[in-house]
């Protein structure tokens, strides 16, 4: 039953979507077609689908490791941004450096940036017991504002007519394409690679085992000799690194410059991807494609049906709500309790 949960959630989301479009005065059948079918009918949009799914999958794989360990990293958006900023330092500060080393260095810096930024909530949690949900989320907004400041201030392209954007990256700082034209960059391969490695390590390595134990029974993890703090730090570092990698790939492979808005909420949408993919790295690849579909469908719907772009976010929100709802309702039964019988709740323990 719990395997079916994502399927039920998707169907319910489509039904809710149809209701929403009807309320907006749009023909629901046409709207759903534009959203979910049209993008897969053309080659360019299929390619775009993969380009958008790649960062979602990279981030979601890292988040899945966190969530499996019962560590709630909600700040992937910030780690994504930190990775993009760190990696972009090379092409922005050394625009004339032309070497094969530029790109690998950028990627490594991107990973380090994401890791460092993710280390903050991990250390706060380990040292002071600070709730990582709050700290990682709040740190996201700080990262976004730092990026905003950089591209309006020190890193603004002097020749940009005051537009808040950095210089365009040189060829040496641009991720190569997989096929000669279009936008399919090699960053897509990182997502597939990360999924494979994560899947293997989760099932067969001692570290993967440690993550599972920590998530299922913290006391047993301690008994097994795994340090909860070390696990918390390591899953934060891995997921931060993957989010940072996604960030620098997005900037280097798609945008080619830093701007105030480099992500349409990938870091948050990846939370949905992680749960839709049952926290399973391979299934996350599929889930990422579905979420990417909602982004592209949303753009199409804006153009063809004149519905607001916020509808896309609504859709994503519906989806998360439905998945979590399905998971909860499959595992638990609803029982209405009046205040009178509530007082006797003590006996329910027995």
């Amino acid at each position: 039953m719990s395997v079916l949960s994502p399927v039920i959630a998707i169907v319910m989301t489509l039904i809710l979507g149809a209701v929403l479009f009807t309320a907006l005065g749009v023909n629901p059948a046409q709207a759903l077609y534009v959203y979910f079918v049209e993008p897969v009918t053309q080659l360019w949009s299929l390619e775009e689908l993969v380009v958008k799914a790649a960062p979602l999958a990279l981030i979601a794989i890292g988040l899945a490791l966190c969530y499996r360990a019962n560590v709630w990293n909600i700040g992937a958006e910030g780690q994504f941004t930190a990775g993009a900023i760190f990696g972009s330092a090379i092409p922005i500060l050394l625009p004339d450096w032309d070497s094969w080393m530029v790109l690998p260095l950028m990627l490594i810096l991107g990973v380090i940036g994401g890791m460092l930024y993710a280390a903050i909530p991990a250390i706060l949690k380990n040292r002071f017991g600070a709730n990582e949900i709050l700290t990682s989320l709040m740190l996201s907004y700080i990262a976004l504002l730092v990026l905003d400041w950089l591209v309006r201030g020190p890193w603004r392209d002097p020749g940009s007519f005051n537009f808040p954007q950095s210089v365009t990256f040189s060829d040496a700082a641009t991720l190569p394409l997989l096929v000669s034209d279009g936008r399919l960059h090699v960053g897509v391969l990182f997502a597939v690679l990360a999924a494979l490695i994560a899947a293997i390590r989760l099932s067969f390595s001692v570290q993967g085992f440690a993550i599972e134990v920590a998530g299922n029974a913290p006391r047993a993890a301690r008994f097994s000799g795994f340090s909860q703090k070390r696990i918390t730090l390591s899953v934060f570092l891995i997921s931060g690194g993957l989010a940072g990698l996604a960030g620098i790939c997005e900037v280097s492979g798609v945008l080619n410059q830093l701007r105030p808005e480099i992500s349409p909420g990938y870091g948050f949408a990846a939370i949905i991807v992680a749960f839709l993919g049952r926290l399973n790295p391979l299934a996350i690849l599929l889930a990422a494609l579905l979420l990417a579909l909602s982004y592209i469908g949303g753009e199409g719907a804006q153009a063809e049906l004149a519905v607001s772009s916020t509808v896309t976010r609504l859709f994503q929100g519906f989806l998360l709500l439905m998945i979590l709802g399905c998971d909860t309702l499959i595992a638990y039964k609803i029982r209405l309790v009046t205040s009178r019988s509530h007082a006797s709740g003590e006996a329910a323990r027995g």
Partner: peptide
């Protein structure tokens, strides 16, 4: 062997 089997000596989901 700890006192509490479930969640300490063993993981029930495993």
């Amino acid at each position: 062997v700890p006192e509490e089997r479930m969640g300490h000596g063993a993981v029930s989901n495993f």
